[in-house]
Lab assay of single mutants.
Amino acid sequence: MQNSHSGVNQLGGVFVNGRPLPDSTRQKIVELAHSGARPCDISRILQVSNGCVSKILGRYYETGSIRPRAIGGSKPRVATPEVVSKIAQYKRECPSIFAWEIRDRLLSEGVCTNDNIPSVSSINRVLRNLASEKQQMGADGMYDKLRMLNGQTGSWGTRPGWYPGTSVPGQPTQDGCQQQEGGGENTNSISSNGEDSDEAQMRLQLKRKLQRNRTSFTQEQIEALEKEFERTHYPDVFARERLAAKIDLPEARIQVWFSNRRAKWRREEKLRNQRRQASNTPSHIPISSSFSTSVYQPIPQPTTPVSSFTSGSMLGRTDTALTNTYSALPPMPSFTMANNLPMQPPVPSQTSSYSCMLPTSPSVNGRSYDTYTPPHMQTHMNSQPMGTSGTTSTGLISPGVSVPVQVPGSEPDMSQYWPRLQ
């Protein structure tokens, strides 16, 4: 039975679970980093996980050691009161100082060594604690504590007292930064006198190289990059290397530039699409467009005044059976039934097929058609009795279509119309 579990990581490298990497692998990681390889490249070359490479390099940059820390136990506290007071002093002298600059000053002034120097995250935590204590304490208590930490007896009751030896409130920041720059020169002199001055200088240079600022491109470089971006948004590694040799930039910087440029292009394309949609959409909808001609068919113009009344309900007709019959029939052209047409008796099958359309009241044959006459024609229609054979009435077949029909004066039988409509 094995005491430890061995495995293979996602890159194909072998590791022992819970145990640190061998010293030979750690040394190779540092050597590759000094030669300029990126952590992701080191991870692929040595088949070590990216997190492990970053952790080893980060500890090497901070402490200069590649040895693993002790497994188990607690780390001794490195942010001692003396170190905290120095950090507060540096922050007062130059409020814009960075944590890694404070760390360098602690090393250069001999406050800490490589073994007990606090990390950048520890210094940031100390600065946050100082800021929170400043908010919790009152103004007087804060000034007393700062005077105690600074070891001075001057008056701290006013704002300019934060910067000793100065009279203009805006000047101390520059003086403090100048003092810090002077301390940086002392850093070089002190570290050069040490035993491991060369190694420390190499480590600091490598650290500065990794902690780079934003790349500033010249106009020629920007023009070359934009020209390549117009050709393709995704250049391959050969195109990037050719462009890197042409404009004297690292291939990694060119790759990052193209990634950022593609993101910018997507944002601009989104804005262009929004403007295009806004320009195509009308600002207001016309009133006429809300009524579609496919839904509402136009009603033909009436030929006679009587045809303006298109349904039985508008003429005072309360018989719903006839109203439904007229509205359900398709529109037909106007025609006239003459008196000489043969009077065919209704076929029983045809009569039964339209039995649902006729009223059940037996008085329908005896009703006159003056009910369908509009009010303004009552006088004219009353002067001509319906009993004469020459009287013409208008029957409504569908809305908007008038059918003048000659009705025999002897017997106005409704059943004569249905064979004609089939």
Results as ranks from 00 to 15, higher is better:
56 I>S: 05
122 S>Y: 01
41 D>C: 04
115 D>G: 14
116 N>H: 13
8 V>H: 07
34 H>G: 11
108 S>V: 12
116 N>V: 09
16 V>F: 15
149 L>I: 09
96 S>L: 09
22 P>C: 06
25 T>K: 14
92 R>Q: 14
100 W>M: 06
134 K>I: 07
40 C>Q: 05
24 S>G: 10
61 Y>L: 08
108 S>I: 13
52 C>A: 14
21 L>I: 05
81 P>L: 07
142 M>L: 12
149 L>Q: 08
71 I>Y: 10
44 R>S: 06
58 G>T: 15
20 P>K: 01
65 S>L: 05
142 M>V: 11
25 T>W: 04
97 I>F: 13
21 L>C: 01
49 S>A: 00
47 Q>L: 14
5 H>S: 12
71 I>T: 14
84 V>C: 10
105 R>P: 01
26 R>E: 01
12 G>L: 04
57 L>K: 02
14 V>Q: 11
131 A>Y: 08
49 S>Q: 00
29 I>S: 02
51 G>N: 03
22 P>S: 05
82 E>Y: 14
80 T>K: 07
106 L>C: 07
140 D>G: 10
115 D>Y: 11
61 Y>W: 08
88 A>F: 10
146 L>N: 10
141 G>L: 13
80 T>M: 04
111 V>G: 09
30 V>A: 07
123 I>N: 05
104 D>Q: 13
31 E>M: 10
82 E>A: 12
70 A>Y: 06
86 K>P: 03
64 G>Q: 05
14 V>M: 10
75 K>H: 05
87 I>W: 02
27 Q>A: 14
50 N>H: 06
18 G>M: 01
16 V>Q: 15
53 V>H: 02
131 A>F: 11
69 R>L: 12
136 Q>I: 12
107 L>T: 13
16 V>T: 12
79 A>L: 14
146 L>M: 14
77 R>T: 07
72 G>D: 04
68 P>A: 09
6 S>I: 15
115 D>H: 15
32 L>H: 06
85 S>Q: 14
20 P>I: 01
48 V>K: 00
18 G>C: 03
41 D>T: 08
78 V>K: 15
66 I>S: 06
119 S>A: 04
147 R>E: 14
93 E>T: 11
11 L>D: 02
108 S>Q: 11
7 G>W: 09
134 K>H: 00
91 K>A: 04
94 C>P: 05
45 I>W: 08
96 S>D: 14
100 W>E: 04
63 T>G: 02
89 Q>T: 09
35 S>V: 11
9 N>M: 02
95 P>C: 10
104 D>S: 09
46 L>D: 02
127 L>Y: 13
139 A>D: 14
66 I>T: 08
132 S>D: 06
38 R>H: 04
15 F>Q: 04
106 L>I: 07
109 E>R: 12
60 Y>R: 01
21 L>S: 04
42 I>C: 03
106 L>V: 03
113 T>E: 14
139 A>K: 13
105 R>V: 07
65 S>E: 13
17 N>P: 15
87 I>L: 10
40 C>T: 09
138 G>R: 12
51 G>E: 04
130 L>G: 08
3 N>Q: 12
98 F>D: 00
33 A>P: 01
134 K>P: 10
85 S>F: 09
148 M>C: 10
41 D>I: 06
94 C>H: 13
11 L>C: 05
74 S>Y: 03
9 N>S: 01
97 I>S: 14
95 P>N: 12
82 E>V: 11
32 L>S: 02
114 N>Q: 11
115 D>V: 13
142 M>E: 14
48 V>C: 05
131 A>H: 09
55 K>W: 02
104 D>A: 13
